[in-house]
């Protein structure tokens, strides 16, 4: 008789990543990924790009045969002062049923106000009222999907005087209240630390480790103004050295957490993107080895 575990191992439909580092799959690489089948642990896409039929779903279904998948949403607008759009959840759920992702995520931000969807991840004030609104929407989505979702810390270019707590405390709190997991975007922490003037290492050290189930890395860009420079989370270049350093520190604290390289603008050849994910994998491997040695010594 075949046990359930054997069946999982024999399936041609990979369920969980064997390697921690993955890449965001974009339309430009649909053909290349199927030809090269690079040694990456998993792929991630925005579900909103697959709500329609045709080419995109066709290629995602093909790629899904080879790689575990994470669905990373940008459209739930969980932090809006109104309930999550039913139709959006319905379309999202249909994709979950079809592609069986190992992770589902969206952001601690808002995009919709009134009837307008602004198509950006806008910053929330970290107040008790926001916690109530955001957690209400996270509960709604988790109940609708019947599973745990991950919430990502956003990049921001503005912060609020009315904040009642730092962002790390806000993230810990929503995870504790809703049981959701945390998607820690290390580049976003770095970008914010420069834009708002705080210590990014202090931020990482104050995130509760248990709920952290995914890490994002991406490149950012400086935008110069007459009165100073703002770092913008553009996802259009390699991960900066400062962010790799912060990532090393993150892995030392949280261990081997699935890590994704996001690249959305000026997309390079697939090999370059895979090279970035290899860099993340090397950091994880090095850390795991050090940890094994420490255990042996003890």
């Amino acid at each position: 008789m075949t046990s359930a575990k054997d069946m999982t191992q024999n399936t041609s439909f990979p369920v969980a990543p064997l390697r921690a580092a993955g890449i965001g799959l974009r339309a430009k690489h649909y053909e290349d990924i199927l030809t090269d089948l690079p040694a990456i642990g998993w792929i991630e896409v925005h579900p909103e790009n697959y709500f329609g039929g045709g080419t995109h779903r066709h290629y995602l279904a093909k790629a899904r045969e080879f790689y575990p998948l994470s669905l990373h949403a940008v459209g739930l607008s969980l932090g809006s002062d109104k309930p999550v759009d039913e139709e959006h959840m319905k379309q999202f759920k249909a994709l979950i049923d079809l592609f069986e992702p190992f992770q589902i995520s969206d952001h601690a931000s808002w995009s919709a106000s009134g009837n307008a969807h602004l198509n950006d991840l806008l910053p929330l004030p970290y107040t008790k009222e926001t916690i109530k609104r955001l957690c209400g929407n996270i509960d709604r989505v988790q109940n609708y999907f019947g599973r745990t979702i991950l919430i990502e810390n956003p990049s921001s270019y503005l912060s609020y005087t009315i904040d009642e707590m730092p962002e790390y405390e806000f993230m810990n709190d929503i995870a504790k209240r809703t049981g959701c997991h945390i998607l820690l975007d290390v580049n976003n922490i770095y970008v914010q630390s420069v834009n708002h003037g705080f210590d990014p290492y202090h931020y990482i050290d104050n995130i509760t480790p248990e709920p952290v189930r995914e890490i994002h890395l991406a490149g950012h860009t400086e935008r110069a103004f007459d009165d100073g420079t703002i770092l913008v989370d553009t996802h259009n270049r390699p991960v900066r050295d400062e962010v790799w350093d912060l990532y090393e520190h993150t892995i030392a604290r949280f261990g081997s957490v699935p890590t994704l390289i996001e690249w959305d603008g000026d997309i390079p050849p697939l090999s370059e993107l895979v090279g970035e994910s290899d860099k993340a994998q090397a950091i994880i491997d090095r850390h795991m080895k050090t940890q094994d040695k420490t255990h042996e010594a003890a």
Binding site: N119, L158, Y160, T161, G228
Partner: peptide, 26 residues
């Protein structure tokens, strides 16, 4: 007054980043 202006960059310039993100992406 609900926004900080802690690193010397004006509120107008900070909003410009968002305006650009929203209008450019759409």
């Amino acid at each position: 007054n609900i926004f900080k202006s802690d690193t010397g960059i004006s509120l107008e310039n900070r909003f410009k980043v968002y305006r650009n993100n929203v209008i450019r992406s759409l």
